[in-house]
Design a protein around this nucleic acid. Structure first.
Length: 826
RNA sequence: GCCGGAGUGGUGGAAUUGGUAGACACCUGGGACUUAAAAUCCUAUGAGAAGCGAUUCUCGUACCGGUUCGAGUCCGGUCUCCGGUACCA
């Protein structure tokens, strides 16, 4: 026997056997309860990183465990294979994006398989295949038919480096989510999905998602950003236009002393036309237009702006108030114009101070330390209404609905709800994505491609210049077509879809991956959905997880799925870090999975990653820790092999073990408590670290047993078999190999989770803790189920208790049978 | 600023309902085996103090206070760190 087990041979052997046996192929089966375990599918960059390994190891333990626990488990894998890197490689290396991507997928397949993951590979989905994006296009057309897809000319987020537009969700801190270039604005005509129609449902349903982390739900709530308020019309002096504003603070209307419009507000040009202020206004607009979001938001306190020479009329008191434009008012929120109440809004306060504007308080804090007529900052808390006509004296919070009612009666305002969420901009000026299946006809306008003509294939005769426009424009075969409506010559849309659309329904395609009639059948979707356990990084908390919910709701609405929500339970795994920082090339702290697999094997890599931290926490990579996990597996290997050699293979069948002494009982106890503990930790609360710790305890116990006791072979055999079974979901190769070596014909992966013997967990004697005034003084053994009285009397007889209570008063004795005795002494 | 989450040995982390704080590992020290090394096995390992010693005592879960017979766990306040988000009207 060697010192170390030969993981290379064992792992490839079993991976091959699983493949030949079709071990993880799943079919619908009404006789079993289903369990859909899903990990977020990767972008095929070509190389797995530790984050992937962690994600898939977690998913694999859950899937294997659920399978052993008797569920019909769906555990698929695929690739989110459209996207920019393929195209950038094309520009850089003159490679075909398709070839680059397919090569990478082959490479990733190998790496995933080398981890021993229990996927049903027959269900593999890749979003860049025509079989997939055909149905992506079909779904887009359904959105279009329901009026939920539209094209609009609008200022949009533009990444100068990626040369494409971005959705709001893809702009992080004013920078492009992928390449971190500062995002600028551009006016473009683009396709949108009307996700705002679903804002309320996306928000309300969050309450039903009990299996989601609060953190993620809060992030989505904030992103959707629902606020209740009022829209109020202000007349503009010497104009028939009305300026509509949104406010959540209708109570402060009497304190509005000026108005601010966003520089992009459509009324601005007309309002200043031919006026002396025009030039200055234009210059300011121009300045703002060239600012990136970062510049625009970085000057958070220094307010700039320009008076446009016009006045509005405050509808409550007829007061004429000046109108300004300023970059602190955003066109993308509310109505793009505000009433400014400097006394009660910090931003308005700063602006008023900078421009010497009037500040009128209308809410009285009733706090003598605040001088209302010489405020140092805006007063934003609750108070009593003043300077507000008939509303004076009211609590300002209570005044809000009353004010809105009054505005409504006067016909100048309405109760409104505003969302921060914007419609989803889905056009991308890139090649490697799903072509938007729309056709422009000069007579009919935008017309969807006929569904029977799908897919609209990506052309291959394109040039990659990386400049500004979709490369598809360069195709000679793609653009020109005929109108599906009237048959006249027409032109195809050349933009492609945001790849986040592709990943918004892949979990449904897994349910029915080879369907050629539909994206998926209702029957199969209803059998498998929704996903029982979804696992992935928290970085997708908003983007992917909200888009996927939106798609699922829509597909439910058009009758394609019973479920309204895609993911019942969500586990957001923590990052893998090293030396206190995220693994990155620039820091030089990257550990490659391939390196670890070569040195220690996949089982060790999986074990370490699951043992080092609970899944939702950060995982600090430690080379010594990996070494330790490897050591443990070798320890298991030696234990089992010494046992196999000792029985010389001639004894395979053992009777049900009978415990003959204390050592036997102790091992039997450990054996059963491990089954219980691992089942609870791995199957319920996903604390794989403690599950593995308890398996380690069992192994330690078995070594001790072997050393000290006379071997009870049936019992030890049972311990060995239990050990291998409970360890199998974590380290499937080595356990399967040893199981096989023990002479078993069946496979561990197909075995049932062992049932523990409740009676073995009941100890004859229980250790009782003795405390004096809550502090531990002694311990002693009591027969199980001893009475309260007996326990107390036994405790009183202890030497240490006598010592500690001598000459003192025992005020009170707390006895919890089977646990503690506490003497309160004075 | 606002919204989440977290602070436990030298390190990663246990302690699931308020009941032995530090499971399981890593690191480190000591020992056995070996010509030697590696591997393996045994052993010690929160801090401090007393004792030749078995052992005993004190302190200890970010900080301050509270509830309780008893608090890492519950309550009030403070600090720090991490994550998200922000001229959102």
């Amino acid at each position: 026997m060697r010192d170390k087990y030969d993981f290379t041979a064992i792992e490839s052997k079993w991976q091959k056997i699983w493949e030949e046996e079709d071990a993880f192929r799943t079919v619908e089966d009404d006789s079993k309860e289903k369990c859909y375990v899903l990990e977020m599918f990767p972008y095929p960059s070509g190389k797995l990183h530790m984050g992937h390994v962690r994600n898939y190891s977690i998913g694999d333990v859950i899937a294997r465990f659920k399978k052993m626990a008797g569920y019909n488990v769906l555990h698929p894998m695929g690739y989110d294979s459209f996207g920019l890197p393929a195209e950038n490689a094309a520009i850089k290396n003159n490679a075909e994006p398709a070839k680059w991507t397919y090569d990478n997928m082959d490479e990733m397949d190998k790496q995933l398989k080398s981890m021993g993951l229990s996927y049903d590979w027959d269900r593999k989905v890749a979003t860049c295949t025509p079989e997939y994006y055909r149905w992506m296009q079909w779904i887009f057309i359904q959105f279009y038919k329901k009026g939920l897809a539209y094209k609009k000319d609008n200022p949009v987020n533009w990444c100068p480096s990626c040369q494409t537009v971005l959705a709001n969700e893809q702009v992080v801190d004013g920078k492009c989510e992928r390449c971190h270039t500062e995002v600028t604005k551009k006016n473009l005509s683009q396709w949108y999905l009307k996700i705002t129609d679903y804002a309320d449902r996306l928000l309300d349903n969050l309450d039903k998602l009990e299996g989601w982390p609060d953190k993620v739900k809060t992030m989505q709530r904030n992103w959707i950003g629902k606020s209740y308020g009022a829209n109020i019309d202000f007349e503009i002096k010497d104009s028939d236009k009305k300026l509509e504003v949104f406010t959540t603070r209708a109570d402060t209307l009497f304190g509005a002393t000026y108005m601010v419009m966003s520089p992009e507000h459509p009324f601005v040009d007309e309002l200043v036309a031919g006026r002396p202020e025009e030039a200055e206004v234009k210059a300011y607009q121009e300045k703002v237009r060239h600012m990136s979001d970062i510049e625009r938001t970085s000057t958070s306190n220094e307010k700039t702006g320009v008076f446009i020479g016009r006045y509005a009329v405050n509808p409550v008191n007829g007061k004429e108030i000046p109108i300004y434009i300023s970059d602190y008012v955003l066109m993308g929120y509310g109505t793009g114009a505000i009433m400014a109440v400097p006394a009660h809004d910090q931003r308005d306060f700063d602006f008023a101070k900078a421009f010497g504007l009037e500040i009128i308080p209308v809410v009285d804090p009733e706090d003598p330390s605040i001088d209302l007529y010489d405020l140092k900052e805006a007063f934003v808390a609750e108070g009593k209404m003043i300077n507000s006509g008939q509303f004076d004296g009211m609590n300002n919070k209570e005044a809000i609905p009353k004010m809105i009612d009054w505005l409504n009666e006067q016909g100048i305002g309405d109760k409104t709800v505003n969302f921060r969420l914007r419609d989803w901009l889905i056009s991308r000026q890139r090649y490697w994505g799903t072509p938007i299946p729309m056709i422009w006809c000069d007579d009919c306008g935008w017309v969807p491609e006929k569904e029977e003509n799908l897919p609209v294939l990506l052309p291959t005769d394109v040039e990659f210049t990386g400049k500004g426009e979709s490369p598809i424009t360069t195709s000679k075969t793609f653009v020109n077509t005929v109108c599906p409506c009237c048959g006249k010559p027409a032109r195809r849309e050349v933009d492609t879809m945001d790849t986040f659309l592709d990943s918004s329904w892949y979990f449904l395609r897994y349910c029915d991956p080879h369907n050629e009639e539909l994206p998926f059948s209702r029957e199969k979707a209803d059998y498998w959905m929704n996903v029982d356990q979804y696992i992935g990084g928290v970085e997708h908390a908003i983007l992917h997880l909200m888009y996927a919910r939106f798609f699922q709701m829509f597909l439910h609405d058009i009758g394609m799925s019973r479920e309204e929500e895609p993911f019942r339970n969500l586990l957001t795994q923590g990052m893998v870090i090293k030396d206190g920082a995220k693994m990155s090339k620039s820091l030089g702290n990257v550990v490659s999975p391939a390196e670890i697999q070569a040195k220690y094997g996949s089982d060790t890599a999986r074990l370490f990653i699951l043992f080092a931290a609970p899944p939702e926490k950060e995982l600090d990579w430690s080379d010594e820790g990996v070494e330790g996990s490897y050591r443990f597996l070798n320890r298991v290997y030696r234990l089992v092999f010494e046992y196999i050699e000792s029985i010389r293979g001639d004894q395979r069948e053992f009777p049900e073990p009978v415990c003959e002494n204390e050592n036997d009982k102790s091992l039997n106890f450990m054996l059963n408590s491990t089954i219980k503990k691992v089942g609870e930790d791995a199957g319920g609360r996903f604390n794989f670290n403690t599950a593995i710790a308890s398996i380690m305890e069992l192994v330690n116990e078995m070594y001790k047993y072997k050393q000290h006791a006379e071997m009870n072979l049936p019992l030890f055999n049972k311990a060995i078999e239990t050990l291998l079974t409970v360890l199998n979901p974590f380290t499937p190769h080595i356990t399967e190999e040893m199981w096989n070596q023990l002479g078993h014909e069946d496979r561990l992966y197909a075995k049932s989770w062992p049932v523990y013997d409740e009676s073995a967990l009941v100890k004859d004697e229980i250790e009782i803790i003795v405390q004096i005034n809550g502090k531990l003084k002694d311990k002693f053994l009591m027969p199980n189920n001893s009475s309260k009285e007996d326990t107390e009397q036994a405790a009183r007889r202890l030497e240490k208790v006598k010592e500690a209570t001598e000459g003192k008063n025992i005020v009170k004795v707390i006895v919890i049978p089977g646990k503690i005795v506490n003497f309160v002494v004075k």
